[in-house]
C-alpha cells in the first residue's frame, strides 16, 4: 500500500497538482454552504446580475442570488451524485459480472446480451430514456446515470472473473477443497479490486458531465436547485448580454473536477497496471 502511494506521488507535477486542485473543490463543497454568509436560494432584487466583486466573488445571478454560494451547493450535488452513481453502478456491475463469469453457460449469455443491449445506446441516450420514464428530477437523473454505468462495470468484472478463475492458484485452491464463497472472497475479489477502481475513477467524471447535461436539457435538477448544469441553463441568457459569470463558474467547476479526476485516474491506472503505461517510454526517434 505504501509503495503504491509513493508511486502515485512520483507521478510528477501534474498528478500532485490535480490532486491539490480537486482537494480545493472538495473543500469548497464542504465549506462554502456552511461558512459563506450568503445563501444559495435567497434572492435579493437590489443586487441583480452584479459583476464579481469582493462582496460577491462570483457575482450574482438574474434574481440576485450569490453565485459563489450556489457554486458551493452545486459542487456538493455534483460530487455526491457522482460518488453515489459510481459506487452503486460498480456494485451492481460487480454482481452481474461475477455471476456471469462464474455461472457461464446460458446465464452468462443472457446477462451479457442484456449488457450489450444497454451498451447499444450512446450513454446519454440511455440515461435520457431512463430519466424521462422515471419523471424528470435529480433522483431520476441519478438513477439514469447509474444504470448507464452498470454495463461497463459488468463487462470489466466478468472478464476479470474469467481471468482470475483461470489462474493456477485458483485451481490449487479448488483442489484443496476451498468452497465457492471463500474462493470469491479470498481470491477473486481482491484481484479485481484495482481494475474496478480504475474503471470507477475513469467513470466518475463522465457521470458528473451526464448529470449536468440532463440538468441542462431540463431533465435533471429543477430550476431553482443550484445544480451546475441547471445553473448553466439559467446563465445562458445573461451571458449573451454581458453577464458571463452566472454560467461561467459552474462550467469551470465541472471542467476542474472532471479533468483532475481523469488525470488522477490515468495515473492510478499506470501505477496499478504498468502494462498500459506510456510515461517514461524510451523510443528510438
Amino acid at each position: 500500500m505504501r509503495r503504491t502511494r509513493r508511486a502515485l506521488l512520483r507521478g510528477g507535477g501534474a498528478t500532485v497538482a490535480a490532486a491539490a486542485v480537486l482537494g480545493l473543490v472538495v473543500a469548497a463543497a464542504a465549506a462554502v454552504p456552511v461558512l459563506w454568509p450568503h445563501d444559495a436560494m435567497t434572492t435579493t432584487f437590489g443586487s441583480i446580475l452584479e459583476a464579481p466583486s469582493l462582496a460577491h466573488p462570483m457575482g450574482t445571478d438574474g434574481v440576485g442570488r450569490d453565485v459563489l454560494a450556489r457554486f458551493g451547493e452545486g459542487a456538493r450535488i455534483s460530487l455526491l451524485i457522482g460518488l453515489v452513481a459510481v459506487v452503486t453502478g460498480a456494485l451492481a456491475g460487480l454482481l452481474i459480472g461475477l455471476t456471469s463469469g462464474l455461472a457461464g453457460g446460458a446465464v452468462d449469455e443472457v446477462l451479457m446480451r442484456v449488457m450489450d443491449a444497454l451498451m447499444a445506446f450512446p450513454t446519454l441516450m440511455l440515461t435520457m430514456a431512463v430519466t424521462i420514464s422515471l419523471g424528470s428530477g435529480l433522483p431520476s437523473a441519478t438513477a439514469g446515470v447509474t444504470i448507464g454505468t452498470i454495463p461497463w462495470f459488468a463487462r470489466v468484472a466478468r472478464s476479470e472473473t474469467l481471468r482470475i478463475t483461470a489462474l493456477p492458484m485458483v485451481e490449487a485452491a479448488v483442489a484443496l477443497g476451498m468452497g465457492r464463497a471463500r474462493l470469491i472472497r479470498a481470491h477473486v475479489l481482491p484481484h479485481m479490486v484495482s481494475v474496478l477502481v480504475v474503471q470507477a475513477t475513469a467513470t466518475y467524471g463522465s457521470v458528473i458531465l451526464s448529470v449536468a447535461a440532463l440538468g441542462f436539457l431540463g431533465l435533471g435538477a429543477r430550476v431553482p436547485t443550484p445544480e451546475w448544469g441547471a445553473m448553466i441553463t439559467e446563465g445562458m441568457e445573461p451571458a449573451l448580454t454581458g453577464a458571463w459569470w452566472v454560467a461561467f463558474f459552474p462550467g469551470l467547476g465541472m471542467l476542474i473536477v472532471v479533468t483532475c479526476t481523469s488525470v488522477l485516474s490515468d495515473r492510478i491506472r499506470d501505477v496499478l497496471d504498468p502494462r498500459g503505461s506510456f510515461s517514461g517510454v524510451k523510443g528510438v526517434t
Partner: peptide, 8 residues
C-alpha cells in the same frame, strides 16, 4: 474530455 459541450 472534461468540458461540457454546452458550456464550451
Amino acid at each position: 474530455l472534461g468540458t461540457a459541450p454546452f458550456w464550451l
